[in-house]
């Protein structure tokens, strides 16, 4: 033991020593914002929102749709649309290999999943971006699945709801990715002309080509609290203008203040708020029963354990 280790208090020291904890791995998660260590099952009931600081953690696309849609009558669509490598793109790795890795890691075939279903009894089509799949980037498959979902919405006159979480267009599909911006925007314009509501909900983060197309074309644009969304990433802006960015820049609160979004919706209120909106836009009455259950599930606060003595799995990073 070096002299440095000796003067460090034992409580602090134990933090870095994995084997000192008998807590099973994955049972605890550290909030990336406030560092509170949270009990996983409780976090689950809280829809992955930190009960201490209200930070909305990233969730998978599947979980997103699972907590959003009614349990009955779900049907995944456009599953036969798969990623293509028209350019045979290769950098330090082959794009094909990058896709396989992402598929293994996430269990998804590309970065967007689409489902027909119901929200509080109202027929809807929903899509959600899987950020863990290649940064939620949009290439052919994402654009095509979004478009097919929108076409179902058009044909069956169901509102379309999109949860975005993405770094933007997918570099490895080059201009084909760029053209997905035009394609998705065009199909959204058809929804608009047909009077079918399109609700875009941005979840942390939404940047680049997706932000400059489908994410900001909603009849209603909304965002989860604290989500970062913008065209250019903060680093690029800082490099360009050579000055520090103001605090809260490109967060949902900033977007609301500057008129880019209609509202900020807390994850726990997502079903109710969107249900209430599409109910009015389609002149239907949402049935509130299922969401009441959900509400009663999440009222109890969970115990927050001090971080010193437990193992935590690696959390996502937040920068401010």
């Amino acid at each position: 033991m070096s002299w440095l280790d000796k003067i460090v208090p034992s409580v602090v020291r134990s933090e870095g020593q994995k084997n000192s904890s008998k807590v099973p791995e994955g049972l605890w998660k550290k909030c990336p914002k406030c560092d509170a260590v949270l009990y996983r099952p409780d976090l689950d009931t809280h829809l992955e929102v930190c009960p201490k600081c209200d930070h909305h953690m990233r969730i998978t696309a599947r979980k997103r749709l699972d907590i959003f849609l009614d349990e009955e009558n779900r049907e995944e669509i456009a599953t036969d649309v798969l990623p293509v490598d028209r350019l045979k793109f290769k950098d330090i790795k082959k794009y094909k290999d990058r896709i396989s890795i992402a598929q293994k890691k996430t269990g998804e075939t590309d970065a967007l999943i689409a489902m027909k279903g119901q929200l509080q009894g109202i027929d809807v089509v929903t899509v959600a971006f899987e950020f863990a799949f290649h940064g939620g980037s949009m290439g052919y498959a994402v654009g095509e699945r979004f478009t097919q979902a929108a076409n179902v919405a058009l044909a069956e006159r169901r509102p379309l709801i999109c949860f975005s979480a993405t770094g933007g267009a997918r570099m490895q599909e080059a201009l084909i990715s760029l053209m997905q911006m035009a394609k998705t925007s065009a199909v959204i314009e058809r929804l608009k002309q047909a009077g079918i509501p399109y609700i875009s909900i941005m979840t942390d983060p939404v940047y680049g080509g997706v932000s400059a197309s489908l994410a900001l074309l909603g009849d209603i644009n909304a965002a989860e609290p604290g989500a970062r969304a913008g065209f250019a990433g903060p680093n690029i802006i800082e490099q360009t203008i050579r000055q520090k960015l103001p605090k809260g820049f490109q967060r949902s609160e900033f977007l609301l203040e500057h008129g880019a979004i209609d509202m900020i919706i807390h994850r726990k209120e997502m079903r109710d708020r969107v249900g209430s909106l599409i109910g009015k836009f389609t002149n239907q009455q949402p049935s509130l029963a299922s969401s009441d259950d959900l509400e009663s599930d999440v009222v109890d606060a969970v115990d927050v354990v001090e971080p010193a003595n437990v193992d935590v799995d690696t959390p996502e990073k937040t920068e401010d």
């Binding site: 932000s211 994410a215 074309l217 360009t240």
Partner: peptide, 20 residues
């Protein structure tokens, strides 16, 4: 343009709207 004012005035939305 990647700048503060550009983002404040909704550069993403302005591009998206043109595409649509």
């Amino acid at each position: 343009y990647p700048g503060i004012d550009s983002e404040e005035r909704g550069i993403s939305e302005s591009i998206a709207q043109n595409l649509a």
